[in-house]
Simulated scan of single mutants.
Amino acid sequence: MLLVSLLAPLVTSEGLDSRIKPSSKKGASPPTKPSLWKTTEFKFYYLVFLVAVPLMFRAGLQASSLDNPNYTRYERLLSQGWLFGRKVDNSDSQYRFFRDNFVLLSALMIAHTSIKRIVIYSTNISKLRFDLIFGLIFLVAAHGVNSIRILGHMLILYTISHSLKNHRKIATIIIWAYGISTLFINDNFRSYPFGSVCSLLSPLDNWYRGIIPRWDVFFNFTLLRVLSYNLDFL
């Protein structure tokens, strides 16, 4: 229980980002909308949940069952699971990385939050600057020189939203169009040599590729965050 009490503050919403901490200023609270939990709409959602979720589990159990007539076709893709001796599909690189490194990622999350608190408490570095520095270090460690490709996409999307901020509809269309196109660009050119773009960039092709060379797989999460930022900005 002592360990839980020590770690709990690190994973609260306020602990992860103190910017969302409620204001301590006194004053009239802004008007709030009535709760939707008991409305007909939400009751429909509850019904869908009660029906759909069990069917999802049922479909997964049937697909991975030895009795499935197609089992022999994909048995080679299954790995030993951790529940009731059943095998799991661990072929997807994105989820395989998460499952295989769950303990390490959890430790990294706790370490990041702890270091952040210590640094901010003992120095004059702002939370924003710490997140920027730590984020860049983590990005380079994870994807190495391919971080340039990720930052390039982010810079283009950032430029679109800020240069067209007075034309929201046009900016939104262009942002979505480019954002979706990056998925196809990455799929076809994720390993495109830097030297083919410019001979001066040839040395980059031999640089550190990071812990996760397949940067394009995890770029999907980055894209969602960047789209969210740009649309909120507009």
Score class of each variant (00 low, 15 high):
223 L>Y: 12
229 Y>H: 12
212 I>P: 00
138 F>N: 10
139 L>D: 06
54 P>K: 12
22 P>F: 06
208 Y>C: 04
132 L>G: 01
38 K>A: 07
93 S>E: 11
86 R>H: 04
171 A>L: 02
141 A>I: 15
172 T>P: 00
222 T>G: 15
190 R>C: 03
144 G>F: 11
180 I>V: 07
202 S>C: 02
10 L>R: 05
76 R>S: 15
10 L>P: 01
58 R>Y: 15
53 V>T: 08
114 S>L: 15
198 C>H: 10
121 Y>C: 14
39 T>E: 06
223 L>Q: 13
95 Y>I: 15
189 F>T: 01
178 Y>M: 03
199 S>H: 02
171 A>I: 04
42 F>K: 08
63 A>G: 03
157 L>W: 00
118 I>S: 03
136 L>Y: 07
157 L>G: 02
187 D>E: 15
34 P>K: 04
74 Y>R: 10
82 W>Y: 09
131 D>A: 14
207 W>F: 13
109 M>R: 02
56 M>I: 14
134 F>K: 03
80 Q>I: 07
84 F>T: 01
179 G>D: 01
144 G>M: 08
29 S>N: 14
103 V>A: 15
173 I>T: 12
233 F>R: 09
12 T>F: 03
43 K>W: 12
171 A>T: 05
215 W>P: 03
47 L>Q: 13
29 S>D: 04
59 A>Q: 06
21 K>C: 08
192 Y>G: 05
195 G>S: 08
90 N>C: 06
60 G>M: 04
169 K>P: 00
223 L>F: 12
29 S>K: 09
227 L>K: 04
139 L>N: 08
138 F>A: 15
143 H>V: 14
187 D>K: 15
95 Y>G: 03
197 V>Q: 02
49 F>V: 05
154 M>S: 10
204 L>H: 05
37 W>T: 05
139 L>G: 06
112 H>M: 09
176 W>Q: 05
208 Y>T: 01
138 F>L: 15
212 I>R: 04
79 S>M: 12
41 E>G: 08
4 V>N: 13
109 M>Y: 08
144 G>A: 09
178 Y>H: 09
71 Y>W: 10
214 R>T: 12
175 I>G: 02
42 F>V: 11
18 S>Y: 03
94 Q>T: 10
221 F>I: 13
81 G>N: 01
120 I>E: 07
143 H>Q: 12
179 G>T: 00
27 G>V: 02
83 L>D: 04
133 I>Q: 01
5 S>I: 13
85 G>S: 02
182 T>C: 01
193 P>R: 00
186 N>S: 10
142 A>G: 07
3 L>H: 06
88 V>A: 08
145 V>C: 11
57 F>D: 00
163 S>G: 12
112 H>G: 10
198 C>Y: 07
10 L>Q: 06
206 N>K: 11
1 M>E: 12
173 I>V: 15
135 G>C: 05
179 G>Y: 00
77 L>I: 13
